[in-house]
Simulated assay, not measured.
Amino acid sequence: MNWGEMFFHDWEGILRTIIVGALAYATLVLFLRISGKRTLAKLNAFDLVVTVALGSTLSALLLQKSVALAEGATALALLIFLQFLVTFISVRSPGFARLVRSEPTLLARHGAFCEAAMRQSRITEGEALSAVRSSGGRHISDVETLILESDGTISASLRRSP
């Protein structure tokens, strides 16, 4: 085993990574700007999959000599186009939207936890109470509704004081 090769192969590989990396990064930024704000919005499960796939593609493009810049750029464009297509169809078809996106879940109502929904969503009381405190409440009794949104955030609507 050559210990030196574990840390450094040659300058050609480093130069390729710098050039292809800069061009791939610029390509990804350009594609994301063209695709609009929706691509960079808060992530739901589908968006997270696309984001991970984009990162994996960019990584392969940077580190695998067998992947040319044009192929990597095509893969990035394809992923962004597919995300655009899914969101385009989702806006026009409620049934399709339900298929690819999760619905918000009611975690608490009128000052009481919905235990079954909390269990099914794998949300602890501590996590829920943290969201209540972030919204200005102190205890679950301060809550009118507590909702696990489709992007994974928890939003709290507090009861109005009489």
Rank of each mutant, 00 (worst) to 15 (best):
V91M: 11
T57G: 01
G152H: 08
Q64M: 14
I123A: 01
G136I: 02
H9E: 15
A53G: 08
Q83C: 02
L61R: 07
G13L: 09
E103L: 14
S121W: 01
S150R: 10
S135F: 01
S161R: 14
L43M: 11
L79M: 08
F31M: 14
H110R: 12
L76H: 00
I34C: 11
L63K: 13
H110G: 12
T105N: 09
R159W: 00
W11E: 09
R133W: 04
G152F: 07
L58I: 14
S93W: 15
A108V: 04
A131K: 00
F113H: 06
A45C: 12
A128G: 03
L40D: 02
T153A: 08
T145Y: 01
N2T: 11
T27I: 13
S157C: 15
S134M: 12
A117D: 08
I18G: 06
G95S: 15
I154D: 02
T105D: 10
L107D: 00
E144F: 03
G36C: 02
S130W: 05
L158R: 01
S35E: 00
L30F: 13
M6S: 15
S59G: 15
I80V: 10
W11A: 09
A128R: 00
E115K: 05
K42N: 14
K37A: 06
S66A: 15
A60P: 02
F113M: 08
I18T: 10
A45S: 15
R109H: 11
S102H: 12
E125F: 05
A108W: 03
L158S: 05
A73P: 02
A73F: 07
G55E: 04
W3K: 05
T17C: 11
L148V: 03
P94V: 11
F31Y: 13
R159K: 07
R159C: 14
G111F: 01
A97V: 07
K65C: 03
V49Y: 12
A75P: 10
L69N: 00
L54R: 02
T74C: 15
L78D: 06
E12K: 08
S150L: 09
S121V: 05
T145S: 08
A117K: 05
V132Q: 01
P162E: 03
I18Y: 11
I154T: 07
A26H: 08
T74E: 10
A24L: 10
I80W: 04
G4A: 11
S130D: 04
V29R: 07
A156W: 01
A75E: 08
S35C: 09
S161C: 13
L63F: 15
S56T: 09
A24V: 07
L43F: 11
E125I: 07
C114Y: 12
L43A: 10
T145N: 05
L62C: 14
R38P: 00
S35D: 03
G136Q: 05
G95A: 14
F8N: 06
E144M: 03
A24F: 04
